[in-house]
Amino acid sequence: MHEAPSSEELLGAVIGFLTEKAAPQLSGQAAFHARVAANALALVEREMAQRQPADARARALYAALLNDTSSPLEALTKEVCARIRSGALACDDPALLAALREITSAQLTIDQPTYSGLKP
Rank of each mutant, 00 (worst) to 15 (best):
A75D: 13
D93R: 00
L108Y: 09
L66Q: 04
L76A: 12
V80H: 05
S71P: 10
R85N: 11
L97E: 03
R57D: 12
L96F: 01
L61Y: 10
A75Y: 04
S71C: 11
L96P: 02
I84D: 04
A90T: 02
A58L: 10
C81D: 13
R85V: 13
S86Q: 06
R57Q: 13
A63P: 05
S70K: 14
A58K: 04
C91I: 10
L97P: 00
A82D: 15
C91S: 11
L73F: 11
P72S: 05
L97F: 00
E79P: 09
A63D: 06
D92R: 03
I84S: 06
L73D: 14
L73G: 09
R57A: 12
A58V: 03
L76M: 12
S71L: 13
G87Y: 09
C91A: 13
A58F: 04
Q107V: 13
A98Q: 04
S105C: 07
Q107S: 13
S105R: 12
R57Y: 04
I84R: 15
C81A: 13
L89N: 06
Q107N: 10
T104A: 13
T77Y: 11
S70M: 08
D93V: 01
A58S: 14
L66E: 08
R83N: 14
L61H: 09
A99W: 06
E79A: 12
E102P: 01
A95Q: 11
T69G: 13
R101S: 05
T69A: 15
R101W: 03
N67S: 14
D92E: 14
R57S: 09
A88R: 11
R59G: 08
R101K: 10
I103C: 04
T77Q: 15
D68F: 08
A88W: 05
L65I: 05
I84Q: 14
P72H: 03
L66G: 04
L100S: 07
E74V: 15
L65P: 07
S70A: 15
A90I: 00
R83C: 07
L65Y: 05
S86E: 10
L89W: 03
T69K: 11
C91K: 12
A95G: 00
R83P: 11
T104M: 09
S86A: 12
L73A: 08
A90P: 01
A88V: 01
D93C: 01
P94G: 02
R83W: 11
A64K: 11
L100R: 08
A106W: 06
C91D: 04
A99Y: 04
A95T: 14
A90E: 07
S105T: 09
A90H: 05
V80D: 04
S86L: 02
D93L: 02
S105W: 01
I103D: 10
L76Q: 11
L65R: 08
D92F: 01
